[in-house]
Amino acid sequence: MATTLSRDAVAGRPVDPAAPLLAVEDLRVEFRIDAGTVRAVNGLSYTLGRGETVAILGESGSGKSVGAQAVMGIIDSPPGFVTGGSVRFRGVELLDLPEAERRRVRGNRMAMIFQDALTALNPVFPVGWQIAEMFRIHRGLPRKAAGEKAIELMERVKIPSARVRAGSYPHEFSGGMRQRVMIAMALSLDPEILIADEPTTALDVTVQAQIMSLLAELQQQTGMGLILITHDLGVVAEVADQVVVMYAGREVEKGPSLPVYHRPAHPYTLGLMDSLPRRDVHTERLRPIKGSPPDLLAIPPGCAFRPRCPYGREICAREEPPLAAVTSDRISACHFWEEVSRERAGA
């Protein structure tokens, strides 16, 4: 395999210096299963620049993870198919690349970490070995040199006594340490993009903060773009530059994270905010969003959120709301976004 790859080409195609690090446009993914076609992602668009963080927010089944897997190109096919849209990495269309070249992009240029590092690490090999394997297969380093690099990386993600712990197996680590191992593995080849799929969901609150600040620190050192998939609004407000809120496979609100956080323009975002305990506002009780997400096999016509929406009216059942420009850099897929955004006008 190639040793050091030129960073100015992707799979032999020259990069466009003016293009953003990653541009996802109208991405569509469906799963064809016996029961029918599940439209997991119906039009997802965002751009990610160097050193930027985009948060993709949504509850389970909103398509946020599938969207990320499609960007990585690791959707099981069949049953999963990317049916439309484009994913351009520094201007190079990834969806058109043959699998062998796509594989070279994975790990080298973009990497991914998963929710539960216990299941995302191979249980039968020591962690040091697993990190070292990245250097051996992608960089062709000999065993010993790769092992040294692995220890270096473990130190970089602040695993104490890394040299000792390199020989331990994944189940011998605590959740936070395991996630650090996963991060070390993902960063081994200096990817330009890191996709973190709910990196802190399985962790204790105190450890969550440690992992998030580690990610922020590493991002600052390397200038990598971070795609953060989460259902935790609090995390989003703290670290993300941009946020994309997804519901039933569709993006419902998108924009810079602080304005979206402070003044949501979609009832779903507002519902997420209200179901979150806040330190600054003493509400008498939390207001959860009623009902549950729709069956992706049979998304209702019109607005998918209507059955759960306190603003829902007759038009919502008929017409799928267009993406309305809330401000120049924000959009909301709600017929009544103006009314919704007035909700927090005083806040």
């Binding site: 690791i74 992009v105 994975r106 991914m112 998963f114 690490l121 297969i137 593995m185």
Partner: peptide
């Protein structure tokens, strides 16, 4: 997940 993870890291 570790098989997905390996794929996400470009393992053949």
């Amino acid at each position: 997940d570790y098989v997905d993870a390996a794929r996400a890291l470009g393992v053949r």
